[in-house]
Design a protein around this nucleic acid. Structure first.
Lengths: 215, 215
DNA sequence: GTATTATTGTTAATAAAATGACATATCCGC
DNA sequence: GCGGATATGTCATTTTATTAACAATAATAC
């Protein structure tokens, strides 16, 4: 790992810190020590301190961390203070469900929904009209789109993703059950629900195998 | 790590192997070496071999791995050969989207959908009537339910999860943006979409900060 | 103000994961 | 069948991640 680069394991933990700090903030907690936070979160205090110190010293010896300040700083680290314009491609059940989700609070602003299927023509979700996919190129030339949420089937996903990259898209939140294999400078975050279920299946078997199942 | 126990990192990789092998199988590929698979998957051959050898020797020197056999064996390891009965609690957009998903092929059979909101009374999704949450206890006494998919808001999620555990549920697929803190013998798999987006946001900033944004 | 306690930031030690190396076994062409 | 090529399974090494230790610093009580 190059010096100054932060490991992915650390990044993956940040949102959870952010969430806990947000809850503390709501509960009116003003300060917290790494020790107490570690007990609530069931991680080691050492890990919290080391994770945070990748980004700078946010605490004070003998005092701990100011909840509001730390919450805000982690938010900045995660880039939640910047608004990203997002579109959803794929207006099926999952796409529509995500469209109804409120991602504004983590800085994502939904400005369009697209699908290839004409049956969605005229349909709106959350006040946003579903547009036909062949109008996407025009749309992209008129609007700055930072992130594409991809909720299309596996088959079209890969080609579509490459097309999006050609059109200048730099970040994809991918729900299609496939790897996209895009160039290095494009951010891809996969959400593979199938695979999540499979690991649950594994764990379930591992923990409960051999137990009676009387029916 | 206790001897004989498999690390979570290995388990998380298994579904991806399974997916690639499934595709190879569909394409009529009969055998594959760790080297070739590693090139396709962009991981090291060493990792593939070591991961697989946690569970036994599935390959043959000088030959490689039989695709169909390995695919099936990984499926068994993941427990995909066993059918799990699943219910969804929370019939909002996400719950309904998941209900429409086809998880049968990874061994999950949806047998019920529940919600507390009377507006869902009489509504069906994929032929399954949404039932009122207060009938859940009766339902559980009449049906063997292995896994609960939890797509309810944060607030009720924790108490509901504890209640489910009291009723004998041993595995929860949790989409609520909170930790459930259940006893050790309950399997919990979290899908925190917010947090996924936050890490995307981080990466986006990290990769594209400083770039001009002329509008 | 001073002593005591609390708690960080950081370095050191340990543990875990990933990679590399290689001996051994199997295949395949001839 | 023999020999070279192939590719596994496993052990050794390296790298990465986590945990522990502690010196330095700030807060708090008196």
């Amino acid at each position: 790992m190059r010096k100054g680069e932060i490991s992915k394991a650390v990044i993956r933990r940040l949102p959870r810190y952010y969430r806990y700090l947000g809850e503390l903030l709501q509960n009116g907690v003003v300060r917290i020590s790494s020790k107490e936070l570690s007990e609530r979160m069931k991680v080691t205090a050492s890990q919290i301190r080391q994770d945070l110190n990748n980004f700078g010293g946010f605490g004070q010896q003998g005092y701990g961390y100011n909840v509001e300040y730390l919450h805000e700083e982690i938010g900045k680290i995660l880039g939640l203070d910047v608004t990203h314009n997002m579109i959803i491609i794929g207006a099926g059940n999952l796409g529509q469900a995500l469209a109804n989700y409120n991602f504004e609070k983590v800085g994502f602003h939904l400005i369009g929904i697209f699908d290839i299927n004409p049956r969605f023509e005229g349909v709106s979700v959350r006040g946003i009209a579903i547009q036909m996919l062949d109008t996407l190129e025009d749309f992209l030339s008129e609007h700055k789109v930072d992130v594409v949420t991809l909720t299309v089937p596996k088959r079209p996903a890969v080609d579509l993703a490459h097309h999006l990259v050609d059109l200048g898209i730099k970040a994809i939140w991918n729900f299609a059950p496939t790897d996209l294999n895009l160039s290095e400078d494009v951010c891809v975050k996969n959400v593979h629900l199938n695979e999540s279920l499979m690991t649950l299946s594994y764990e379930y078997r591992a923990k409960h195998s051999g137990e009676a199942r009387d029916e």
